[in-house]
Design a protein around this nucleic acid. Structure first.
Lengths: 337, 337
DNA sequence: ATGAAAGCGCTAACAC
DNA sequence: GTGTTAGCGCTTTCAT
């Protein structure tokens, strides 16, 4: 592998000048620049990123921390982030935490040690003080979570509350007379907002009781079990709003188990809009712009890494109701039972 | 951040000696070692990985290249690889290629430049000669693919052909009288093996015709369309073996579209055994040990990186038939129609 | 068993 | 505009 020294020799200049054209910093005569560029081409020279990093430049590596890479939401985020990262010349490090605080902490220590330039963090376990602590050492952009009390934390999130309104109103329009909610962990901002959105609309209905809300923890299995319980308590539930798509899948499994038809007996709406249409029947869902969220996270991170000021620390994205088969009895299709 | 120099001063030795204990190479008196270890602890010293890399050591970074991170098979691989990698002190770089040869090539160039220690490659587009070319520069372990003509390529793969036997025999046992196959790209080893497995058993049946095999290309959409065509050509097909799970999902969608009951009218079996049970009804599938495959890939890569000889360049894993709802009419559950 | 010193390939003052 | 040089933090001969 040729080094900067080889280039400087071939071009008949000093390595400093070569360095200048590599970084195009400082002044360098058009002509010499040309000679150098040519020499670089001839030698197929590529600056060594490790040496650059050691000499004080950035590592051009960023990390993506996700709680559960098996939840299709996160591969979608990962795809978008990786795509933008590689386009911008960054290398993406993937970290899966299984919702473990310990792992998160240990990853951040590695990031510091390896001088990662920045991190995109999806976590439901890390709290504001820990984020702020690490933020002093490296730029961090949080996705799908938010800390309203801590305005210095940069985050990207969707309109969860109004998204929930869309979901519930849709169920009402479809004629549902008793709508339940399977919620995510209540200490997670997005889960709580979706819950609040449900509450906003349902609380005032005469059929409403608090135990129409059951805990699913953003997991298939928990949601499945919660659904069994729920339908046991309230046989007359005819609409379910699940706090995310995989919980909706859990609910679907539960309803199937109980021999309850979807959508004929119970109509179901999820949240997230994971793009790979894995579920049959296809799920009606409140779709977040997941790819956009990943890409924006990358852009904001780049802003931070370049000390560019942000217009605002929190960016809230619009959501969209995607009406599919699990909530509408159309075309005479019935899926279960 | 303290440096090796700080440690050497505090311990009253030269940096060379400190380096020796860091790498425990060369001789160093028990006593001095203790002093140094203590000094390191006091200063909370951690060797700078970048400096180490520059000075000629490895980067402790490995790359995982996948064709499509949205296919749940690959997040599962990624999870296992990342898990072992971080356990072993390696950092995992994620690369998504969208089956683009160009992207693959460009990633490998980056790997060389960044002195990645090794790569785990899942690709259906890279061919043997390209792998061998890059293999001269860095250790590579191929997963879910294999090049029988090129025994120097290290790969990990499942028993695809006998897995297909399991699938087809199961369908026959379930009473199927005409079994079709939705295959993956025929230039991909695993797809071809699964196809061969289907053929092994079906070719001799009196109902067999070559056009019972349709092309799905390992994608949902293509498989969906292939299924529509297939069922149009052969109304009497009552069993489908799909070359992977997401193609099985595509088939399910197609059958749904045509108002064909699963499993009552058509029984369906997939391949892969993606663990997240996203599909309702749950898919009968030939399950590969996906996590194990990822972990083994990491282990073999470590062997290669340490120049340890492998017992064999190709490792073939056992598969398992997971009987679920899409192929058995049990408990009076019927899912569609 | 330990230390001195020459790099690894690059950046960034500083000097001319 | 361009060159000289001192690092960045570590590894690794080569002496001793």
């Amino acid at each position: 592998m040729p080094t900067i020294r080889d280039v400087s020799k071939l071009a008949g200049v000093s390595i400093a000048t070569v360095s200048r054209v590599i970084n195009n910093s400082g002044y360098v005569k058009q002509e010499t620049e040309k000679t150098i560029l040519h020499a670089m081409k001839v030698l197929k020279y590529e600056p060594d990123p490790i040496a650059r990093s050691l000499a004080g430049k950035s590592t051009r590596m960023i990390a993506l921390v996700v709680p559960d890479i098996l939840n299709p939401f996160f591969p979608e985020i990962a795809k978008a982030v990786e795509n933008e990262a590689s386009r911008l010349g960054y290398t993406l490090i993937l970290c899966n935490t299984d919702n473990s605080l310990e792992k998160e902490e240990s990853y951040f220590r590695v990031f510091e040690q390896k001088r990662i330039d920045g991190v995109i963090l999806a976590s439901y376990t890390f709290d504001a003080s820990q984020i702020k602590k690490w933020q002093r050492k490296m730029p961090i952009v949080v996705i799908d979570n938010r800390f309203p009390e801590h305005p210095t934390i940069v985050s990207i999130i969707s309109h969860n509350r109004s998204g929930a309104h869309l979901a519930v109103n849709h169920l009402i329009e479809q004629g549902c007379q008793k709508i339940a909610h399977i919620c995510g962990p209540m200490d997670v901002y997005s889960a709580k907002e979706r819950y609040k959105g449900y509450e906003d609309i349902c609380e005032s209905q005469e059929w409403f009781t608090p135990d129409l809300v059951v805990q699913g923890n953003f997991q298939i299995k928990e949601s499945y079990q919660a659904t069994l319980q729920l339908m046991n308590r309230h046989q007359d539930v005819d609409g379910i709003f699940a706090g995310n798509d995989i919980m909706a899948v859990g609910a679907l499994k539960g309803l199937l188990e109980l021999n309850i038809g979807v959508p004929s007996e119970v109509k179901l709406v999820g949240f997230d809009g994971i793009s790979i249409p894995l579920v049959v029947p296809e799920l009606t869902t409140v779709s977040q712009p997941i790819g956009e969220m990943g890409a924006l996270a990358m852009f904001r991170l780049v802003d931070l890494m370049n000390n560019r000021p942000l217009e605002s620390n929190v960016q809230v994205l619009n959501v969209d109701l995607m009406i599919k088969d699990s909530s509408t009895t159309r075309a005479s299709k019935e899926f279960m039972k």
